[in-house]
Amino acid sequence: MTKKKNNTDILITHIIEGIEEVKGENIDILDLREIENTVCDYFIICDGNSNTQVNAIVNSIQKIVSKSLKEKAWHVEGTENAEWVLIDYVDIVVHVFQKHIREFYDIESLWGDAKVTSIETNY
Rank of each mutant, 00 (worst) to 15 (best):
H75T: 08
E83A: 11
W74I: 12
D47S: 08
D106W: 10
D113Y: 01
H95D: 09
I64Y: 02
T79S: 14
G78T: 01
Y89Q: 10
H95T: 06
I92M: 09
M1A: 14
I44A: 00
S60Q: 10
E108I: 01
F97V: 01
V58S: 06
V85Y: 00
K4F: 09
A82M: 01
V94Y: 02
V39T: 01
I12P: 06
L11S: 09
Y105T: 03
N26K: 03
L30K: 03
E20S: 03
L11F: 11
A114D: 07
T2Y: 10
I92D: 10
G112C: 08
N49K: 08
R33F: 06
G112L: 08
L32H: 07
N7Y: 04
I10Y: 11
N49H: 09
E77R: 11
V90A: 11
H100E: 15
D106T: 00
E83N: 14
V58Q: 11
I15F: 06
Q53K: 01
V54M: 00
I16A: 05
V96I: 04
D31G: 07
N26W: 05
S118I: 00
G48P: 13
E71Y: 13
Y123W: 04
F43E: 02
L110R: 05
E103I: 11
T38S: 11
C40Q: 10
N55H: 03
G78D: 12
Y89M: 10
V65P: 10
D91Y: 05
D28C: 13
K5L: 15
C46P: 07
N81K: 02
I92K: 04
T2H: 12
E34I: 04
